[in-house]
C-alpha cells in the first residue's frame, strides 16, 4: 500500500511530507482537482476582496453569501475526520447552498451508525421476476443521473443451466420473466474487507461502523482506483455533471448518501444510508413487489436476514476473494 501512496504522491506532484497526517488533510484535492483556485488562495487579497466590503456594492447579498459558503464548503475537511460540530456546519452550509443555487429545500442528515447494528442483505434468486422496480426506485431515491439512467443495481437475466452472472445479460429490455431464465441482482455488497477502500489515495471512501461502505463525494478526486478494485462492478463514475431536475430531486438526504453529486466523482449504493439509518428499508427493498430482497440487522438474531442465513442454503459471489460481502443469495 505504501508503494501506491508514494507513486500517487509523485503522480500528483506532491512533495514528500514528514508528517503523513499533514499530507492527508491539507488541500491535496484542491491542488489536483481544482487547480485554478490554488492561484486564488496563494494570491493574498483576492479572497478578501471577493468577500470584502468593496464587493458588496457589485454583487447582491445572496450572491455574496453563496460565494462565501462555497468558499468555506470548498475548504472543509474529509467527513470521516470532521468533528460532530464541523459536520453539522458542513450540512447546514450544503442545505443553504442548495437553496441559493437551485432554490431546493433539501434536508441533509449527518446521522451516525446506530450502535449494535451491522447491515446485511439477502437476495432470493427464486423470487426475482426481473421487473426492475428496484432499479427505478434506486435511481429516484438516490438522485442518480437521468441522462444516462445511472444504476447502482444490475439485474442479470441468466439462462437456466448456465453457471454464473458472467453468462447473464443485464441489458435486457423486454417482458419478464421469460421462460427458462432466472434473475439475479447485484449492487455494492458492502464487504467486510472492501478492496475498494485501501486503494483510495485520498481516504475518500471507507467502511462505517454499521458496515456501510461510503464515499465522501467532496473528497473524491475521481482517480477511479476503487472502481477498478471492486470485484462486483459496483461503483459508478460521473463522467459528466449528473442531471436531476429540481422537481424530481429526493430532498431527504444524507451527507454520505443521496445528495447531489458532481462531475468527476465516484458514487455507489449506500444501502440508502439516508433511509436505513432511520430504520427504513433501502428503496430497492421497499419497491420490490416479489419480496426477493431482504434487509436487516445481522446482529439481531430475530431478524429475517439472520433467519435466512441460518436456515437457507446461502452463497455469496466470489467468496474465494475473501472480501466477505454482506450480501447473500439464497433460494427457496
Amino acid at each position: 500500500m505504501k508503494g501506491l501512496r508514494e507513486r500517487l504522491k509523485s503522480f500528483l506532484g506532491l512533495e514528500e511530507s514528514e508528517n503523513p497526517s499533514k499530507f492527508d488533510f491539507l488541500g491535496r484535492k484542491k491542488q489536483s482537482r481544482r487547480g485554478f483556485l490554488k492561484d486564488a488562495t496563494t494570491t493574498a487579497g483576492i479572497g478578501a476582496s471577493i468577500m470584502g466590503v468593496g464587493a458588496s456594492t457589485l454583487i447582491g447579498e445572496e450572491e455574496k453569501e453563496k460565494l462565501s459558503l462555497s468558499w468555506e464548503n470548498y475548504f472543509k475537511s474529509n467527513y470521516k475526520y470532521m468533528s460532530k460540530r464541523d459536520r453539522k456546519k458542513a450540512v447546514k452550509r450544503l442545505e443553504r447552498l442548495a437553496k441559493l443555487k437551485r432554490d431546493e429545500n433539501v434536508s441533509i442528515s449527518d446521522k451516525d451508525a446506530i450502535p449494535g447494528v451491522l447491515f446485511g442483505y439477502a437476495f432470493n434468486i427464486s423470487k426475482c421476476e426481473g421487473y426492475m422496480d428496484c432499479i427505478k426506485a434506486c435511481l429516484e431515491e438516490n438522485n442518480l443521473d437521468r441522462k444516462s439512467n445511472m444504476q447502482y443495481i444490475k439485474v442479470f437475466e441468466v439462462e437456466n443451466g448456465t453457471l454464473s452472472v458472467e453468462n447473464g445479460d443485464n441489458h435486457f429490455f423486454h417482458e419478464t420473466p421469460t421462460d427458462e431464465h432466472f434473475y439475479m441482482g447485484t449492487q455494492c455488497m458492502h464487504c467486510e474487507n472492501p478492496p475498494c477502500v485501501p486503494v483510495c489515495p485520498t481516504e475518500a471512501t471507507w467502511k462505517e461502523n454499521d458496515g456501510i461502505v461510503v464515499v465522501d463525494y467532496d473528497w473524491c478526486i475521481g482517480c477511479r482506483y476503487c472502481e477498478a478494485a471492486c470485484p462486483y462492478e459496483a461503483r459508478r463514475f460521473n463522467w459528466a455533471e449528473p442531471e436531476v431536475s429540481s422537481d424530481q430531486l429526493t430532498t431527504n438526504q444524507h451527507y454520505l448518501g443521496n445528495r447531489r453529486k458532481a462531475k468527476g466523482v465516484m458514487e455507489k449504493c449506500t444501502f440508502c444510508i439516508q433511509r436505513s439509518r432511520e430504520g427504513e428499508n433501502p428503496a430497492c427493498v421497499e419497491a420490490c413487489p416479489t419480496g426477493a430482497r431482504v434487509f436487516g440487522n445481522l446482529l439481531d438474531p430475530n431478524s429475517e436476514i439472520r433467519k435466512i442465513i441460518e436456515t437457507k442454503k446461502v452463497f455469496r459471489l466470489k467468496e474465494e476473494l475473501g472480501t466477505e460481502p454482506k450480501f447473500w443469495y439464497y433460494m427457496d
Binding site: E129, G130, Y131, M132, D133, I135, K136, L139, D145, K147, S148, N149, M150, Q151, K154, N170, H171, F172, F173, H174, E175, T176, P177, T178, N238, W239, A240, P242, P289, T290, G291
Partner: peptide
C-alpha cells in the same frame, strides 16, 4: 397483498425503466 387469490401467479411485464446508458454521460 402479493398474490391475487384467484390467479396467484405473478404476471409478465415490461421493466419500468430503460437500461443504463453510460455513454450518455461521457465527456471523455
Amino acid at each position: 397483498s402479493c398474490h391475487n387469490p384467484h390467479r396467484p401467479v405473478f404476471g409478465k411485464r415490461v421493466p419500468k425503466l430503460a437500461p443504463y446508458r453510460p455513454e450518455n454521460n461521457e465527456e471523455r
